[in-house]
Design a protein around this nucleic acid. Sequence first.
DNA 1: ACGGTCACATTTCGGCCATC
DNA 2: GATGGCCGAAATGTGACCGT
Length: 230
Amino acid sequence: MVQVTERDLAMVDWLGIVRLAEVDAIRWALGAMLGSAEPISTRKAQHWVMRMVEAGLVDRARPTFQSASIVWATHDAVGRQPPNLFRQTTRHEVAVASVSSRYLALGFAWQRDRRPVGMFDHQADGVATRDGQAELVEVELTAKSAPRYKQIHENHARRLTQEGMSKVVYFCTADAYRVVSREADRFIFRTERPRLVSTIAFDKRGHWIGSQSDLVTPVQSTPGVPEIAR
DNA sequence: ACGGTCACATTTCGGCCATC
DNA sequence: GATGGCCGAAATGTGACCGT
């Protein structure tokens, strides 16, 4: 018989929030729930997943071999339909979970962003909170068309100035990073611009290549885009 | 230049065992 | 029961190599 602990339930709750996660993200999240800033071993994470599968709280699948196993909370556990693994947005959701798990490891709480308010509002991929400070988190694996950033970035600026968000942090692929930063320079006023931070944290396949320090980069003291390494 | 083969790298998974 | 370390199996993508 599987014993389900408070920590297990907290993990399943988190899975319910992010919907999907790969085992690597499970490693970070489980570490975080043990109070550690380090991920637990892959073996232990897989073991945990097996226990939860046995308890009926979690399910998993590997869409293609060689790609990472995807884990999600079952309908019984969180009352949501299991995700469709073959949707276009799945890769993005998995990437968001990877970012989220790393925020947990640094002691942040993770929530979904609020539903859009009105037609021109923009919903971020997540909100990370710690010490009473909330940051909007965006994951950008493919750049949107440049014009869309006008509305999105102006929305970010408004939430920085009027909703008390402390930062907006973008985790990007190299390509998306360029566009996100350039459009931020165009559409965010210079007093707010330093509080939108972007970093290259994913490779083209959507695999995490960032480091923990990317999550706590201080806002830039001077407006402008850092040089892109070539 | 092209197509096939093969060894190697990568990643998940589960067994075993000691320890908590 | 849960955790954690170690190890080998399984499976497929990758790149080197080779003959034509």
